[in-house]
Protein backbone atom coordinates (compact mmCIF):
# COMPACT_ATOMS: atom_id res chain seq x y z
CA UNK A 1 0.00 0.00 0.00
CA UNK A 2 2.84 2.37 0.94
CA UNK A 3 4.68 1.59 -2.31
CA UNK A 4 1.53 2.19 -4.29
CA UNK A 5 1.02 5.62 -2.71
CA UNK A 6 4.69 6.56 -3.23
CA UNK A 7 4.54 5.33 -6.83
CA UNK A 8 1.43 7.34 -7.63
CA UNK A 9 2.88 10.46 -5.95
CA UNK A 10 6.15 10.27 -7.90
CA UNK A 11 4.33 9.68 -11.18
CA UNK A 12 1.99 12.63 -10.57
CA UNK A 13 4.98 14.84 -9.68
CA UNK A 14 6.66 13.82 -12.93
CA UNK A 15 3.53 14.55 -14.95
CA UNK A 16 3.16 18.00 -13.33
CA UNK A 17 6.83 18.94 -13.93
CA UNK A 18 6.64 17.74 -17.54
CA UNK A 19 3.38 19.50 -18.30
CA UNK A 20 4.43 22.82 -16.73
CA UNK A 21 7.79 22.75 -18.56
CA UNK A 22 6.21 22.05 -21.94
CA UNK A 23 3.47 24.67 -21.53
CA UNK A 24 5.85 27.37 -20.24
CA UNK A 25 8.46 26.80 -22.91
CA UNK A 26 5.96 26.44 -25.74
CA UNK A 27 3.34 29.09 -25.08
CA UNK A 28 4.43 31.62 -22.48
CA UNK A 29 7.42 33.88 -22.14
CA UNK A 30 8.09 34.42 -18.44
CA UNK A 31 9.03 38.11 -18.18
CA UNK A 32 8.11 39.93 -15.00
CA UNK A 33 7.49 43.63 -15.54
CA UNK A 34 8.29 46.48 -13.22
CA UNK A 35 5.66 49.21 -12.78
CA UNK A 36 6.46 52.54 -14.43
CA UNK A 37 4.38 55.71 -14.19
CA UNK A 38 2.33 56.05 -17.37
CA UNK A 39 3.40 58.80 -19.71
CA UNK A 40 1.02 61.42 -21.06
CA UNK A 41 1.48 59.81 -24.43
CA UNK A 42 0.30 56.33 -23.56
CA UNK A 43 -2.76 57.72 -21.79
CA UNK A 44 -3.81 60.34 -24.31
CA UNK A 45 -3.57 58.02 -27.31
CA UNK A 46 -5.10 54.94 -25.72
CA UNK A 47 -7.64 54.61 -28.55
CA UNK A 48 -4.89 54.58 -31.15
CA UNK A 49 -2.87 51.83 -29.49
CA UNK A 50 -1.85 49.10 -31.92
CA UNK A 51 -3.69 45.80 -31.74
CA UNK A 52 -2.51 43.94 -34.84
CA UNK A 53 0.56 43.83 -37.06
CA UNK A 54 0.65 42.40 -40.57
CA UNK A 55 3.85 41.81 -42.56
CA UNK A 56 2.81 40.11 -45.82
CA UNK A 57 6.38 39.35 -46.98
CA UNK A 58 7.08 37.00 -44.03
CA UNK A 59 3.49 35.85 -43.41
CA UNK A 60 3.11 37.61 -40.09
CA UNK A 61 -0.40 38.43 -38.91
CA UNK A 62 -0.14 38.79 -35.17
CA UNK A 63 -1.77 40.32 -32.15
CA UNK A 64 0.10 43.25 -30.59
CA UNK A 65 0.33 43.05 -26.81
CA UNK A 66 1.32 46.07 -24.70
CA UNK A 67 4.64 45.51 -22.96
CA UNK A 68 6.57 47.54 -20.42
CA UNK A 69 9.93 47.16 -18.74
CA UNK A 70 11.43 44.14 -17.00
CA UNK A 71 13.04 44.31 -13.56
CA UNK A 72 16.41 44.36 -15.32
CA UNK A 73 15.37 47.57 -17.11
CA UNK A 74 14.93 46.01 -20.55
CA UNK A 75 11.94 46.26 -22.84
CA UNK A 76 9.62 43.40 -21.98
CA UNK A 77 8.36 40.82 -24.46
CA UNK A 78 4.92 39.44 -25.35
CA UNK A 79 3.58 36.64 -23.17
CA UNK A 80 2.73 34.48 -26.15
CA UNK A 81 5.30 33.44 -28.74
CA UNK A 82 2.82 33.98 -31.57
CA UNK A 83 2.18 37.60 -30.46
CA UNK A 84 4.23 40.77 -30.73
CA UNK A 85 4.78 43.43 -28.06
CA UNK A 86 4.48 47.20 -28.41
CA UNK A 87 6.55 49.29 -25.97
CA UNK A 88 3.70 51.06 -24.20
CA UNK A 89 5.86 53.74 -22.52
CA UNK A 90 7.14 54.92 -25.87
CA UNK A 91 5.71 56.35 -29.05
CA UNK A 92 2.35 55.18 -30.40
CA UNK A 93 2.68 53.87 -33.98
CA UNK A 94 1.71 56.61 -36.40
CA UNK A 95 2.69 59.44 -34.04
CA UNK A 96 5.86 61.52 -34.28
CA UNK A 97 8.82 59.57 -32.93
CA UNK A 98 9.89 55.94 -32.80
CA UNK A 99 7.39 53.26 -31.88
CA UNK A 100 8.95 49.90 -31.07
CA UNK A 101 7.44 46.44 -31.50
CA UNK A 102 9.31 43.29 -30.47
CA UNK A 103 8.63 39.63 -31.11
CA UNK A 104 10.21 36.30 -30.26
CA UNK A 105 12.39 34.48 -32.73
CA UNK A 106 11.86 31.09 -31.04
CA UNK A 107 10.47 29.59 -27.86
CA UNK A 108 12.02 27.63 -25.02
CA UNK A 109 11.99 24.43 -27.03
CA UNK A 110 13.61 26.02 -30.07
CA UNK A 111 10.36 26.10 -32.05
CA UNK A 112 10.16 29.14 -34.39
CA UNK A 113 8.13 32.11 -33.13
CA UNK A 114 6.47 35.15 -34.75
CA UNK A 115 9.64 37.03 -35.83
CA UNK A 116 11.64 34.01 -37.02
CA UNK A 117 11.81 35.49 -40.53
CA UNK A 118 12.22 39.15 -39.61
CA UNK A 119 15.76 39.18 -40.98
CA UNK A 120 14.38 38.34 -44.44
CA UNK A 121 12.83 41.80 -44.78
CA UNK A 122 14.52 44.22 -47.15
CA UNK A 123 14.13 47.95 -47.73
CA UNK A 124 10.87 48.61 -49.55
CA UNK A 125 8.88 45.87 -47.80
CA UNK A 126 5.58 46.88 -46.22
CA UNK A 127 4.37 46.58 -42.64
CA UNK A 128 0.76 47.27 -41.63
CA UNK A 129 -0.40 48.15 -38.14
CA UNK A 130 -4.04 48.19 -37.11
CA UNK A 131 -4.97 50.51 -34.23
CA UNK A 132 -7.68 50.02 -31.63
CA UNK A 133 -9.73 52.83 -33.23
CA UNK A 134 -9.76 51.02 -36.58
CA UNK A 135 -7.04 53.17 -38.14
CA UNK A 136 -4.76 51.19 -40.46
CA UNK A 137 -1.20 52.42 -40.82
CA UNK A 138 1.18 51.51 -43.60
CA UNK A 139 4.93 51.56 -42.98
CA UNK A 140 7.80 51.00 -45.38
CA UNK A 141 11.09 49.34 -44.42
CA UNK A 142 14.06 51.63 -45.08
CA UNK A 143 16.86 49.96 -43.12
CA UNK A 144 17.76 46.67 -41.42
CA UNK A 145 20.62 46.30 -38.98
CA UNK A 146 22.14 43.39 -37.07
CA UNK A 147 23.76 44.65 -33.86
CA UNK A 148 25.78 43.02 -31.08
CA UNK A 149 23.25 43.06 -28.22
CA UNK A 150 25.24 45.59 -26.18
CA UNK A 151 25.73 47.90 -29.16
CA UNK A 152 22.10 48.50 -30.11
CA UNK A 153 21.73 52.29 -30.44
CA UNK A 154 18.91 52.72 -27.92
CA UNK A 155 18.47 56.42 -28.62
CA UNK A 156 17.86 55.73 -32.30
CA UNK A 157 15.71 52.69 -31.59
CA UNK A 158 13.41 54.37 -29.07
CA UNK A 159 13.91 58.11 -29.42
CA UNK A 160 14.53 59.11 -33.03
CA UNK A 161 12.33 62.11 -33.80
CA UNK A 162 11.51 64.06 -36.91
CA UNK A 163 9.26 61.50 -38.53
CA UNK A 164 6.83 58.69 -37.74
CA UNK A 165 8.91 55.56 -37.29
CA UNK A 166 8.06 51.99 -36.38
CA UNK A 167 11.02 49.83 -35.38
CA UNK A 168 10.78 46.06 -35.14
CA UNK A 169 13.26 44.07 -33.05
CA UNK A 170 14.05 40.45 -32.39
CA UNK A 171 16.95 38.23 -31.31
CA UNK A 172 19.64 36.67 -33.45
CA UNK A 173 23.03 35.03 -33.10
CA UNK A 174 24.22 32.69 -30.37
CA UNK A 175 22.91 32.02 -26.88
CA UNK A 176 24.93 33.42 -23.97
CA UNK A 177 24.15 31.06 -21.05
CA UNK A 178 25.43 33.42 -18.35
CA UNK A 179 23.27 36.30 -19.60
CA UNK A 180 20.37 34.10 -20.72
CA UNK A 181 20.07 36.02 -23.96
CA UNK A 182 21.16 35.87 -27.60
CA UNK A 183 24.22 37.89 -28.54
CA UNK A 184 22.71 39.85 -31.46
CA UNK A 185 19.58 41.80 -32.28
CA UNK A 186 17.94 42.36 -35.65
CA UNK A 187 16.35 45.80 -35.94
CA UNK A 188 14.09 46.67 -38.86
CA UNK A 189 13.52 50.40 -39.28
CA UNK A 190 10.31 51.47 -41.00
CA UNK A 191 8.68 54.83 -41.73
CA UNK A 192 4.99 55.72 -42.04
CA UNK A 193 3.91 56.20 -45.65
CA UNK A 194 0.11 56.04 -45.36
CA UNK A 195 -2.51 56.28 -42.64
Amino acid sequence: MQKKVIGISIAILGIIIGTVTVIRSTYYSPQEETPVAQTAQSVSFSVSHPIQIIIPKINVNAVVEEVGITFKGNMSTPKKFADTGWYKYGTVPGELGSAVIDGHVDNGLGIPAVFINLKKLVPGDIVYVQAKNGRKLKFKVFDIQNYYYKDVPLEILFNRNGDRYLNLITCDGNWIPAEKTDDHRIVVYTKLIES
Partner: peptide, 26 residues
Protein backbone atom coordinates in the same frame (compact mmCIF):
# COMPACT_ATOMS: atom_id res chain seq x y z
CA UNK B 1 2.92 65.49 -25.85
CA UNK B 2 6.58 64.95 -26.34
CA UNK B 3 7.51 62.44 -29.01
CA UNK B 4 10.38 61.39 -26.78
CA UNK B 5 9.57 58.51 -24.44
CA UNK B 6 10.23 59.22 -20.78
CA UNK B 7 11.99 55.92 -20.18
CA UNK B 8 14.42 54.35 -22.59
CA UNK B 9 14.73 50.66 -21.77
CA UNK B 10 17.40 48.15 -22.70
CA UNK B 11 16.95 45.70 -25.56
CA UNK B 12 14.43 42.88 -25.11
CA UNK B 13 15.32 39.19 -24.94
CA UNK B 14 13.21 37.68 -27.66
CA UNK B 15 14.97 34.39 -28.27
CA UNK B 16 14.58 31.57 -25.79
CA UNK B 17 15.80 28.70 -27.94
CA UNK B 18 19.00 28.71 -25.89
CA UNK B 19 17.00 27.42 -22.95
CA UNK B 20 16.27 24.26 -24.90
CA UNK B 21 18.90 22.27 -22.95
CA UNK B 22 17.56 23.19 -19.50
CA UNK B 23 13.95 22.70 -20.61
CA UNK B 24 14.81 19.34 -22.19
CA UNK B 25 16.55 18.32 -18.93
CA UNK B 26 13.36 19.13 -17.01
Amino acid sequence: VSPTPITTPGVPTTGLGGMLVSNAAM
